[in-house]
Amino acid sequence: QGPLTATMLSSASPEEQKEMLGERLFPLVRSIQPTKASKITGMLLELDNSELLHMLESPESLRSMVDEAIGVLQAHQAEE
C-alpha cells in the first residue's frame, strides 16, 4: 500500500475520497491522540483534500493540525 495520491483520489466520488483519506489519517491521528481519534479525524476531513494529502506526507503538519483540533474541542467543551 503506497502513498495516497491526488490521481488515486480523482477516480473516486467525493464521499469515497473522504473515506480514503480518513482511512489513512485515522491511524496517524490515533498515534498522536488515542482517545479522540474518531472525532479529530472527522474534523480534519472537513478540510480541503489537497491539505489532507499534504498532512499525510508531513508528520509535522499533521501534528500541528491535531493539536489545533484538540484546542478547538477543549474550547467547545468549556463553552457547554
Binding site: 482511512e23 485515522f26 491511524p27 472525532k39 472527522g42 476531513l45 472537513e46 467547545h76
Partner: peptide, 21 residues
C-alpha cells in the same frame, strides 16, 4: 486567529481498524 476546524464535525469511524471503546 480563529480555527477553521469545526468541533461539531461528524466522527470518522474507519472500516479497517477496530474501534477502541
Amino acid at each position: 486567529r480563529k480555527s477553521t476546524l469545526n468541533p461539531n464535525a461528524k466522527e470518522f469511524n474507519p472500516r479497517s481498524y477496530a474501534q477502541p471503546k
